[in-house]
Design a protein around this nucleic acid. Structure first.
Lengths: 335, 335
DNA sequence: TCATTGTGTGTAACCGGTTACACATCGGAT
DNA sequence: ATCCGATGTGTAACCGGTTACACACAATGA
């Protein structure tokens, strides 16, 4: 591979001039530029990213730290992140934290040593102190799905609370008389806000009781177990709002296994809008967040921050949308 | 951040000695080593990966090129890759090729400029010529799921042909009288071998006819459409072998929408063993490949090749396994 | 006419590591 | 006594870029 010095020699100029041509900064005579471009073509020269990284401390690399790429939510997100990153010439490193803050710290450490330009956090174990630390270290940060008290970095999220109220309202509208909630980890903003949204929407009903809220850990299995506990205690539940789609999928499956008809005996609504919600029969009603758009926007924000482009807002909040499908579409013919 | 020169100064030695201590190569006096270690602790020194990359042309980074990370098969694979890579101190770059060889070439180009140590290919648009080119460029390669004629690189795959015969035999055993196949892209080894396995297993039956084989493009929608065409033409099909799980999920859904009972009217078997096969009701029978293990082994092989460890075999072929579940478990009570 | 500013280019230091090579010391074999 | 290999360490070049700074020259304005 040709180096910048080869190009300089061939073009009969200094490496500084070549560098100026490549980076389009500083003064370069039109004709000199032509000559350099010629030489570049001739030698098929392309700047070495590693050398550039060392010299400039910019590697055009961003990292995506998330709990687990094999979770469909995060793989959809990752896809968006990579698409946008590629568009801007950036490369994406993936990091699975399993929500383990130890792993996360290890990653951050490694990423620093690699001069990663910025980090996208889609995980909740990051402490406010960590954020300040990263700020001081000068590493741009974008958080997904959580807003630290002092937003010293960009945050991209969606309206979890409102989404939860939407879900409950929808279940009420289709005639549910007793609605339960399967909630996610309360360490996460998403889990917490959706639970709160549910609670605030139903606490005034006389049928409401705290045991209608059961944990499901944002996982398929969690959803299945939750349904089991729930129906043992409240056989008359006729509507379930699950805090995410994976739990809803688990719930659906368990309900079907128990011989209960969804939606006629129990209606079901999830949250997130992952693609898999359409593979079940009935399809899953869900409160959809624009996952791809969220990933894309986060990446765009991160890159703008990296490249020093001023961005006014700090928090971007996406609207959520009820997508009513089979799991809440009561069939009037066979009640 | 401290540099190697800071450490050298503090320890009262030269940078070469510090480097020797860090890399454990060359002769270093025990006491000198102690002193250097002390200094390293004191300064909290950690070698800069970028500088090291430039000097040694080794970046401890591998890339995973695949069609689409948001496909569950690949996200499970990616998880395995990252797990193993982390274990060995490597970092993983993700690249979505969408099976577009242009994109792939662009990636390869960028990856070279970044001194990526090795590439894991889980995509089929790579030509034999490309492989030779990479070999000449000295970039270790591991291919997933395809064996080029001249295996000038490691290949990790599973027994697709055998798996297909397994699937057909199973469907026959549970009593299917007319079995169709939804096949994947014939540019892929997986798609081709599974189709061949099916064909060889059924061609001698008098009910067999080529129109029992319909394309599904390895996608959910493809599976749905395939079922539609299939049943329009062959209403008497009572068993379907889908070339991958996504198509099987699509098929299952379409069958249920059409009011057909799975497995009683039509039995269904997929291929891959992705986790999502358990979320449906009935659960999907599938020919399972050890996706995680395949990703893990590929990564281990790649790293061994990068680090110059001799590995004898060139092709690693995994066994597949029939996982019989609800979609082929005929219920005798309600025929 | 002279200072000033804008344009154009080269030299060399620097980023933070690795490593070839030179050199010194020491114990053991001949 | 001499030679040799093993051990131990430092100097400086090198990886391939970026960029501060110096310098040259032309045009401009006072």
């Amino acid at each position: 591979m040709a180096t910048i010095r080869d190009v300089a020699k061939l073009a009969g100029v200094s490496v500084a001039t070549v560098s100026r041509v490549i980076n389009k900064n500083g003064y370069v005579n039109k004709e000199t530029e032509q000559a350099v471009q010629q030489a570049i073509k001739m030698l098929n020269y392309e700047p070495n990213k590693v050398a550039r990284g060392l010299a400039s401390k910019k590697t055009e690399t961003i990292a995506l730290i998330m709990p687990d790429i094999s979770n469909p939510f995060f793989s959809e997100l990752a896809r968006a992140v990579e698409d946008v990153a590629r568009l801007y010439g950036y490369t994406v490193l993936i990091c699975n934290s399993d929500n383990d803050s130890g792993k996360e710290q290890t990653y951050i450490n490694v990423l620093k040593k690699r001069y990663v330009d910025g980090i996208l956090f889609a995980t909740h174990s990051l402490k406010a102190a960590d954020i300040s630390a990263m700020n001081e270290a000068g590493i741009p940060l974008v958080l997904l799905d959580r807003a630290p008290s002092k937003a010293s970095c960009y945050v991209v999220r969606s309206k979890n609370y409102e989404g939860a109220t939407l879900a409950v309202r929808h279940l009420l509208e289709i005639g549910c008389k007793k609605i339960a909630h399967i909630y996610g980890p309360q360490e996460t903003a998403t889990g917490k806000e959706r639970l709160l949204g549910y609670e605030d929407s139903v606490r005034h009903f006389e049928w409401f009781t705290p045991s209608l809220m059961v944990p499901g850990h944002f996982r398929i299995n969690g959803g299945m177990e939750a349904v089991e506990h729930l129906l043992a205690r409240h056989p008359d539940v006729d509507g379930i709002f699950a805090g995410n789609d994976l739990m809803a999928l688990g719930a659906l499956k368990k309900l079907q296994q128990m011989g209960l008809s969804v939606p006629n005996q129990v209606a079901l609504c999830g949250f997130d809008g992952i693609e898999l919600t359409v593979i079940t029969e009935p399809e899953l009603t869900t409160i959809s967040q624009p996952i791809y758009d969220m990933g894309a926007l986060s990446t765009r924000l991160l890159i703008q921050k990296i490249e020093g482009v001023a961005v006014d807002n700090q928090i971007y909040e996406f609207d959520v949308e009820l997508i009513a499908r089979g799991s809440t579409r009561k069939d009037m013919k066979t009640p």
